[in-house]
Design a protein around this nucleic acid. Structure first.
Lengths: 250, 250
DNA sequence: CGTGATTTTGACGACACTCAAATAAAGTGG
DNA sequence: CCACTTTATTTGAGTGTCGTCAAAATCACG
């Protein structure tokens, strides 16, 4: 499945267009942004490419320009847990004490990133408090999001987990239409299962339940209409879905 | 159970002795540390006191001087998930974009903290890149720790969860003796269960299994001898337990 | 020593996993 | 474009782990 070596995306040598518009660059000095742009490189990864491999050294920090990435950890006994998904504008990799990757980052769709050399990036962060402060808040946002994920896995049963998951996706990637919200998943059932701590079979059966209850329609396995969003919210059992944020993966 | 109001610990008016020795203060200018000390106040909480209440405004950042604190979230349908534990030198509360508390912090043992006004603390952090950088790494450490917790809940069954939990505690609070590691838990079974996404009954039964297998001895419900740590590691199924770090709760 | 809370143990049931097969979708070559 | 292969998803049947409910035992505390 993995068609290329970790951190071996083809570099197209181009400069990325708009570092300055990123959330993590808000209120940052122009001079620092110039320095950032000077060390930035655009890279492309194909669907299925491993961008960062667990336990390998990572000498880059990425900002995702376009695409969808999954983060996962593999346990000694062969299980896999997807800890999160990252998309456009999210920050990926390298922002941590040590260079060893804590989890694997794999491109789900074709993905374009803006890459910075890790050491240089961290030096700039350490020297510039605005940039650092923005990243700190991105990190604390991530802690809150993970906290919700922990609560999901610790407290909720399969229907609530899947409902929450669909609402999370709809929140960021859903298209609202007159009668329903359309959700196009680039994810496999296996990815959903590994994110929610369930098996593919359970995911499939729970989708079937929802379909029979009229909550959703499955046009194709990965094209879903959400018909009754309020009911899904009730099933999810979270009083509030997390706010939009800058995703931060390590 | 909750014997006092949120954020209502008795202030003893004293200055805390040694801000400067904290990990998050490493390499921070003396001038900034002076400012920090100037706005610091010592506070005490009794066992069971709620230090921060979920959804309430928090206008303090705490550094725990002594004691043990649990962080938990309560869901709409009455379940509870403990997301982490904090102890001496760990940072608690307020370091986030908004002031609303994302989870509840409750003192397990009597706890002494050093409190800073949130706004002033964040201003100092924003202005001082060393302090900010230290906090950023504390935050990314926390993200990694939570990532492990997510993997635990998503992939592991009860015995592996409990084994991991005991090893985590032993790593920070265990006392190594000649034949075994002694672990004195200030936690109730209910706390363990809510941390591991299980029930008290399952915790109890799993302890019994371990005892029958000779892995542990239970002198009292909360005094445990770990007899065969390597076997516990194997059961835990994590190739590496997380390194010691500065805990960061929000 | 007695009371109340916590922990343990037991019996039973439900939810989700495993294994297995059928169906549907996607990719491949003629 | 269609038959064929391969992969992904769905459905089915049976099992196991863990949750629920209930009672006994133990512990903590006054």
């Amino acid at each position: 499945m993995e068609s290329s070596h970790p951190s071996d995306g083809k570099c197209n040598g181009g400069r990325t267009p708009s570092i300055r518009e990123l959330a993590i660059c808000a209120h940052v000095d122009d001079a620092v942004l110039d320095e950032l742009e000077a060390i930035a490189t655009a890279m492309r990864f194909n669907s299925g490419d491993v961008i960062i491999a667990q336990k390998c050294d990572q000498n880059s920090v990425f900002v995702i320009t376009d695409g969808l990435v999954k983060l996962y950890r593999e346990t000694a006994d062969g299980d896999r847990q997807i800890t999160g998904f990252l998309g456009t504008e999210d920050v990926l990799g390298g922002i941590k004490r040590t260079s060893g990757a804590h989890c694997t980052a794999e491109a789900i769709t074709d993905t374009v990133v803006c890459a910075f050399p890790r050491k240089k990036f961290l030096s700039l962060v350490e020297a510039n408090s605005s940039l650092c402060f923005n990243l700190l808040f991105a990190a604390t946002d991530e802690i809150e999001a993970q906290s919700d994920h922990i609560t999901l896995l610790g407290c909720k049963r399969a229907p609530a987990r899947l409902a929450t998951f669909m609402l999370l996706l709809a929140h960021r990637w859903g298209v609202e239409e007159k009668e329903h919200v359309t959700l196009v998943l680039p994810l496999s059932r296996s990815d959903i299962a590994d994110y929610l701590g369930l098996t593919v079979e359970t995911i499939s059966r729970t989708f079937a339940q929802f379909r029979q209850a009229g909550l959703i329609e499955l046009l194709k396995p990965n094209v879903i209409y959400l018909n009754r969003v309020p009911t899904l919210y009730a099933m999810a059992g979270f009083d509030e879905l997390p706010a939009t944020r800058v995703g931060l993966g390590l």
